[in-house]
Design a protein around this nucleic acid. Structure first.
Lengths: 109, 109
DNA sequence: TGTAATTATGTCAAAAATGACATATATTGT
DNA sequence: ACAATATATGTCATTTTTGACATAATTACA
């Protein structure tokens, strides 16, 4: 998930200690991962609610079944873009997406 | 933004008409673009509110000033992942992110 | 006005993500 | 148990995205 970490120095030096810097970056990455997992979960629900198979959804979004499976499995090598595209393809509205970002994900029948 | 479109046929054929299929894909892509633009806007606000320069933010997220500029400019070749990472690096909470997804983006002083 | 700081734009090699495919493993209905 | 159907997992060539860098344009402030 990280890149060419700790190169820094673009303009001025130091700004943040290396230890807290490390922790900060980690926590932000954790937030992103958690966000993705929430949306992956929301996708599973949305797809189930509409009785779509992974193949169906893959067709709708111009992707493949295996990729849909990976999205729902929370595969780290899946972009947020793809997850959100899947949600939209599954018929999720922006408002529903917003709700899915909330603390408690309600399971509507 | 699209890929190897219209290859289809994974399992069964047809499922959706090509015309409405085209429109559907377009509308979903539009939704994604709009979402990105909203978040780009939210980032600009968040960064301004905290008096961070693009260089500051770039350092915080281990990226570069030019990339931050591109995020905020709504450059289509910027991933949702990067946008959200920028928001988190700018100190935006998940709850605030949720609000930013709402219909009206309130401009808090 | 100048000049320092900030932001915008373009390019590119390297890194990451993608769709497609094969195939394994459930799950469901008979 | 069997056969469909659905989902999971692994691999890989191609496409997309990335950070870095150069540099232009804009803004702020003396």
């Amino acid at each position: 998930m990280n890149k060419t970490r700790l190169h820094k120095l673009q303009a001025a030096g130091w700004k943040v200690g290396s230890a807290s810097d490390f922790l900060k970056l980690s926590s932000e990455e954790i937030m992103l991962v958690e966000l993705k997992l929430s949306l992956a979960s929301a996708l599973k629900q949305a797809r189930a609610k509409r009785h779509l198979s992974q193949v169906d959804l893959a067709q709708r979004m111009g992707s493949s079944q295996s990729r849909v499976a990976k999205i729902e499995a929370g595969d780290p090598a899946v972009s947020l873009d793809l997850i959100v595209r899947a949600l939209f393809a599954a018929g999720v509205t922006r408002q529903e997406l917003q709700r899915a970002l909330g603390p408690k994900d309600k399971i509507a029948a």
